[in-house]
Structure formats: C-alpha cells, structure tokens
Amino acid sequence: MVPSCHWLFQKASIRMVSNIMSTQQHSIQFNSKSFSFGRHETFALRFGWLTKGFQGLTINPDIFLDEDATVHLGVGKNMVSSIRYWMLATKIAEIKGSHIEASEIGHLIFSETGWDPYLEDEATIWLLHWLLASNSQHATAVYWFFNHFHKSEFSSDEMFGGMKEFVGERLEGKKVADSSLKHDCNILTRLYVPSQGDKRTPVEDALDSPLSTLGLMNKSELSNRYVSKPDGRWDIPLGVIGYAIGELFEASDQSSVAIEAIVHGTESMPGLGSTFRITEECLVSKIEELITWVPGVFELRESAGIYLLYQLEEMLPIEFLNMHYKAYEMEIAA
C-alpha cells in the first residue's frame, strides 16, 4: 500500500526532529535557575486555544506582538498573552530570540496534516498534560504539583503552603510573590477540576480546560478540599507512555533507568507515576505492554533486588506517538 501524504509528512517531520535532538537541551530536567510563576494572566487553558494560537503563529510569526492580535485570535488583550503563555507551557511553541516559534511537537500535532489539531483523541490531552507537567521552566507550579506535592487530599491553603515551601527550598533563595503563588494554585484547580455548574460562578470561569477531562484532580464530596491520588489509569495510551519514557532516557543519557525513578521521579526528573497519578502496579503493567508493543526496544531486568528498564535500541520519543496516531487514524477510517 502506498503511504498517504499525511504519513509521508509525519515521517519527514520525525527525521527533522532526529537531526536536531543532539543540539537541544533536555527540557524535562529541573533547573532551579529557570522557573516561571503567574504568567497565565489568570486564565486557565481552554479548548481551542492551542489550535488557534498555532494557526495564528504559522500565518504571522509576530502574531502575539501584533496590535490586531485580538481581532485575528478573536479574544481579549489579556487572553492573547495567556494563549502565548500556554503555548510555551505545553511546549507547542518555544522561544527563539525575541519571539516565539511553533515547536516540532507543535507542528506534528497542530498543523493542517498534523496528528490531532482539534484534540479529538484523548491521547493528545494526556500528551499535553505530560508536556505541561514536565515543563519546570515555563509551568513550574504544574511541575511542582504533580512531581513534588504528594498529599492525596488537601485544601487550597495546604497547596499554597506546599508551593511556597518548594520555592524557598529549591529556587536558590529566589523570591516569588505570594499573590503569584496563590494565582497559580487557583489556576491548577481550574485546569484539572471539572466545573461544578454553580450558578454563582462566572461563565468564563466555568469553561472547562481540556485537562479537566483526565480525572487527575477532583473536588472532595464531603468538604471544601481537593483530591488527587494514584489510580489504575489503564486508558492512558501506550504511545504517550512510550513518549514519556523515551524522554526520560534521553534526559538521563543512560541505557537503563530504575523503575522506582520512572514511577516516582527524582529531585531533578519527573516521574510517570506522579505525573499521571497512576499506581505503580498499573504503570508496570503498561510498561510490560509497551515492551510487547515495540519488540526489541525495552527490557525489564532485576539486579540485587532493583528492577531496571533497559533501552536496547534507540528509538525517538516521537516515534511512539507516530505509532499511536497511525493506529488511531486507521481505526477512525475503518
């Protein structure tokens, strides 16, 4: 069968990614000198914003500096800045000099021939969550919450206290205004908690973020608290798991990574168990499925009571996603 133009484009894009990987700094590693709080203009990410921002950016590279950006994007002035921020936070765009450009992963997802420009596949939302929660540089609060805040039930005050403690301990004496931290705590709940349909809530605040569909944080039914705990999340696609593990291997630059590090992360690296709020049992099962799905790439071994995942053959993280979306496209076409 002759490949479609869509998949020829994807393969060409993946080769282009391969050519630049060696010159890119691994952005999933925590850097205490590079962080960001309160840049979202108090707006949570909304459905359509990344698509709208990407399309605008590819038509006009200076769209976010354009005086007519509000007209072209169809949003208010502060929302223009917020869209720009969320594109950086989800790694759909990256800073180049004095402006931003669509990233490789941005092109692969959101271009006209991209994998899923309108977020129709839930895998894309899981992927965006990983890209956001592993981005300590531009989404420090989200990175902190999923990788360093381990209370399964908490109040807004406890979340604020934990974030403030993290800033004091990990950001080398840098000070962040309490107001910025409180805004980020509020944004975290609006990103991940489905709206309750309260009539007193302003319409704009009740618009759910795409990330709220993942069930990673919920309002407690018994009190004014929040719940975010590990669960058996069997529906996370293998392509997304493979992409995240592939990024861990690239960032560690090692041929093996301890399962404990993959699950819980380290001081400088995100963990899949923490980020996806997935139980260790479920995650290990997903890794075993991944080993079967891509034969010859990974292998689980046990040494002195420590379980390690070995990478036997180099495979770009992007290629796991390509496998998923190719299967998804065939499923939709069937």
Score class of each variant (00 low, 15 high):
S4L: 12
H6E: 13
W7H: 14
L8K: 07
K11C: 03
I14E: 14
V17I: 12
V17D: 09
I20T: 14
T23C: 09
F30T: 00
K33P: 12
S36F: 06
S36V: 06
F37H: 08
G38A: 02
E41G: 06
F43T: 06
F47A: 11
G56I: 01
L57Q: 13
I59C: 13
D62T: 13
D66L: 11
D66T: 09
D66A: 13
E67N: 10
D68F: 11
G74C: 05
V75S: 02
V80F: 04
V80Y: 05
V80D: 01
S81E: 11
S82H: 10
R84Y: 14
L88T: 07
A89Q: 15
T90P: 12
I92E: 02
I92V: 15
I92D: 01
E94Y: 12
H99Y: 06
E112D: 04
G114M: 12
G114K: 14
Y118L: 13
L119Y: 03
A123V: 05
T124G: 05
T124V: 02
H129Q: 02
W130K: 10
H138I: 00
H138Y: 11
H138A: 07
H138C: 05
A139C: 00
W144G: 01
F145G: 01
F146C: 05
F149Y: 14
E153A: 10
F154W: 09
S156C: 00
D157Y: 13
E158Q: 15
G161K: 15
K164T: 10
E165T: 13
F166D: 08
F166V: 08
G168A: 06
R170L: 00
G173Q: 09
A177G: 07
D178T: 06
S180R: 14
L181T: 02
H183P: 00
Q196I: 07
G197K: 04
D198L: 12
D198Y: 08
K199T: 11
T201S: 03
D208N: 15
L211A: 00
L214Y: 06
L216H: 00
M217H: 02
K219Y: 12
K219T: 09
N224V: 02
Y226C: 05
S228K: 14
W234K: 14
I236E: 01
G239S: 00
G242D: 04
A244P: 05
I245Y: 06
L248E: 01
L248V: 03
E250S: 11
A251P: 03
D253K: 15
Q254E: 14
V257S: 04
E260D: 08
V263G: 07
V263P: 09
H264R: 14
G273M: 04
G273S: 01
R277K: 15
R277W: 01
R277M: 09
I278P: 01
E280S: 12
E281S: 15
L283Y: 07
L283A: 08
V284R: 15
I287K: 05
E288Y: 04
E289C: 07
E289R: 10
T292M: 09
T292S: 12
V294E: 14
L300D: 00
E302D: 08
E302A: 10
S303L: 07
A304W: 10
A304H: 11
I306K: 11
Q311H: 08
E313F: 11
E314T: 03
E314P: 02
P317R: 03
I318R: 11
F320E: 05
L321T: 04
Y325R: 08
A327N: 12
E329P: 00
E329R: 07
M330W: 09
E331Q: 14
I332F: 13
A334L: 06
